[in-house]
Amino acid sequence: MWNSLKTMWTIFLHMFRRRVTIQYPDEKPVIPPRWRGRIILSRDPDGEERCVACYLCAAACPVDCIALQATEDEYGRRYPSFFRINFSRCIFCGYCEEACPTDAIQLTPDFEMGEYDRKNLVYEKEDLLIDGTGKYPGYNFYRVAGLAIKGKDKGDAQDEAPPVDLHRLLP
């Protein structure tokens, strides 16, 4: 009983505290950079698409709201021919970002995505792809991968020896 009264008194005293509410549309909140908001696809430092269409984000997605199709350019560089996120299903859990081996898919502090029509929440690659590296500057997957792409032949990647000469007979 005494406890209850004490509680009531404490709560009553809160009448004289400052309100913590941020009057959102009039007053913009400060969103931390690692906020899990709208998803984007970033580019590597060379300005090429980072996404290599490995399907890991789609596999990690607990609501299966990511669909994509891998394709290759003439030099063997992988990229998605389409990349679709259905934000009307997305729960912004960030698993896709965690799964992404190339830092391509990233969640951003933008959360103002309200739409009156659900189909406007279906984002295609054109809507997702940004022109920068996003949160992770510097990383370029193809510089460390063994796959040859345009302008980077076998042996040109980081920590790679020149390709083996098959016709050399030295022991």
Binding site: F12, H14, R17, R19, V20, T21
Partner: peptide, 8 residues
Amino acid sequence: LGVWQDRY
């Protein structure tokens, strides 16, 4: 309730 819970 808002007043007592530090909100509006």
